[in-house]
Nucleic acid binder design. Structure first.
Lengths: 348, 348
DNA sequence: TTGTAAGCGTTATCAA
DNA sequence: TTGATAACGCTTACAA
């Protein structure tokens, strides 16, 4: 910051100030900060030195307006507290950072109306791309994004239709896989604790996978409970308790359950805790399995059998696909399936 | 989107398009979208209807440039995966949303150089305010923010000096409080497992509090270990393992430890898991205490004694202070101490 | 209540 | 390699 360079609202010096001080044209200053190589070294150094002296910081808002590009991504997630999301957000953050993009982020609280509102609000800032969680969205949201030709990546699922691009894994197959594991291990009466949020496709897919797999094994359909409860949903963090609650519900529903599959590791760990309190031995009296392979799954005794998802990779992919498409608007970018892994531990 | 309204880079209609179609001036359209009440109802309806028809969405980039305000906040955190941060981020998100602000967020990976780079990059987008985590920052960062007269809130600590505003709690006193609890319970040889990241003031404060409290109780200084390990630090999530590792280090250092205090609940839960694996009874053979009161603290058997921090409130406060200051640049906004609570559970 | 004029600080474009 | 000029789409300030 300096002398006579104060302007209106802010106290920033501008390119014009630097240009005048350095005795070059506005455009030269612009070039120095945007594509330094396109300016002669002597000129560049003079300009940079002047810029430093004036405390100049390029105003990207102005640049955005002039160029029509913002280098900004909008990210929409159901919750900011969900550690699953956190991992994929970190993946996006890491990719975007090295690509010189920033991102704004908002949560919808699992509500489609809120999602629509967020997307609409984000659009006014003209992001270069947008990342959504899941594949189920309101018509308004979809129409808006499509009409604007906004590059969009939907995450965590691989079953379309998609607005534009997608990366994730097959929740249905993953659920079948871990169910098959339980069946192979000899468990016959498998309870399911659903995610405490309604209507998310990826959780519906998991449940469907479980049911189909049990069906093809000739087993009775499972007993399904959900610890759904407004408080839980809003807090989102409170899912250990949800798992404990779910186990109790299952126990009420039928006494002879020998395994419990949970829609997430957090729920499953809650089940393990409840078993410990009840003196139920895992896996002898009850097997437990989760979904996600969060860090705790490996650490909680006796180790939680689960499906490892690749959240970080999903985030990284999403960002990479977006940036690719931004730079090559006509590129056809196919679905990226990051897969999943069955991880067997002591709980089964 | 419509007919002849396609423009340069983007395909958006502009206020000028709407104005022409609706037969009013540009300013009237602007007013309709910014302060609807300042326009006659008939006019307003006509403009809105036209806007809808043209798929008009106000370009806030242009608005920002003209008005010198962005309604954008920059948030800088050490890690996006840390659930402690997640809670306070949610607090900010909730406040900012109702105040019609958006935010961009970036993580520094606990590095001051990265923090400086992030702050510098954010500044180019001219946010209306900035939130930093902690109170220790590089000179460059501090000078930049001060020179720009950027409203800034530092979070999670209450000991200055501050760049501008701050909200948090007294980590030193909180650590003394929970240490006193352990001492009162009769524990005499208290080990400490430090946070696996170096030089963060709030963790240094916690350790200092522990030492001072032990000192005034006339007890031997504690045995301190840190599960520090590059992998842990980078992943940040891997702290359950850090707790287990820390316990083993403590056990090697001295056999007669009867209590362990941890710099975070995650570490403490890792200790509980390790105790379970080793067959160590908690709290009979070893008491365990954490810091944070994450959801798991209440759920893990036998319940974790800990310090409840008010992360959501910290986030909410930070956002509120920022918005207040933005609207009243000369307002003196004092430190907001959200306090802490000792929560005693079965582990002690 | 509505309109006119003058920027806001950059970048695209074309020319030198 | 550098420069002149015209946008970019909106808001502020003032006028009617």
């Amino acid at each position: 910051m300096s002398d006579g360079s104060m302007r209106r609202g802010m106290g920033w010096s501008t390119m014009a100030d630097v240009a005048r001080e350095a005795g070059v044209s506005l455009m030269t200053v612009s070039r120095v900060y945007k594509r330094p190589d396109s300016v002669a070294q002597r000129t560049r150094e003079k300009v940079l030195e002047t810029g430093r002296r004036l405390g100049f910081s390029p105003n990207s808002i102005a640049g955005n307006l002039a160029s029509g590009r913002t280098s900004m991504i909008g990210i929409v997630v159901p919750s900011l507290r969900n550690s699953n999301n956190a991992t994929s957000i970190q993946g996006m953050a890491d990719y975007l950072r090295q690509a010189s993009y920033h991102f704004m982020i908002a949560n919808t609280g699992y509500s489609m109306e809120d999602e629509a509102a967020v997307v609409k609000a984000f659009m006014q800032r003209r992001p270069d791309g947008m990342v959504l969680t899941g594949t189920r969205h309101g018509h308004e949201t979809i129409d808006l994004l499509k009409a604007a030709h906004m590059p969009v990546v939907e995450t965590w699922e691989t079953r379309g239709p998609f607005i534009d691009m997608a990366t994730g894994f097959d929740n249905y197959e993953a659920a079948r896989r871990i169910t098959r594991h339980l069946v192979d291990r000899g468990y016959r009466t498998i309870g399911y604790i659903d995610y405490p949020a309604i209507g998310l496709d990826r959780y519906l897919e998991r449940l469907r996978g479980l049911k189909d797999e049990l069906g093809s094994a000739g087993l009775e359909p499972t007993s399904v409970v959900s610890p759904l409860d407004a408080g839980d949903l809003y807090q989102d963090a409170s899912s250990f308790r949800g798992g404990a609650l779910g186990l109790r519900k299952l126990q009420e529903a039928s006494r002879d359950i020998d395994a419990v599959l949970c829609a997430s590791d957090i729920l499953a760990v809650g089940v393990l805790f409840e078993c410990q309190r009840q003196g139920v031995r895992v896996p002898d009296q009850l097997a437990v399995a989760g979904f996600g392979d969060f860090e705790i799954a490996a650490e909680v005794p006796p180790g939680l059998t689960t499906i490892r998802t690749h959240g970080y990779q999903i985030g990284w992919n999403a960002a990479e696909m977006l940036v690719t498409r931004i730079n090559q608007p006509r590129a056809e970018i196919p679905l990226r399936d990051v897969g999943y892994d069955l991880v067997v531990r002591g709980s089964s």
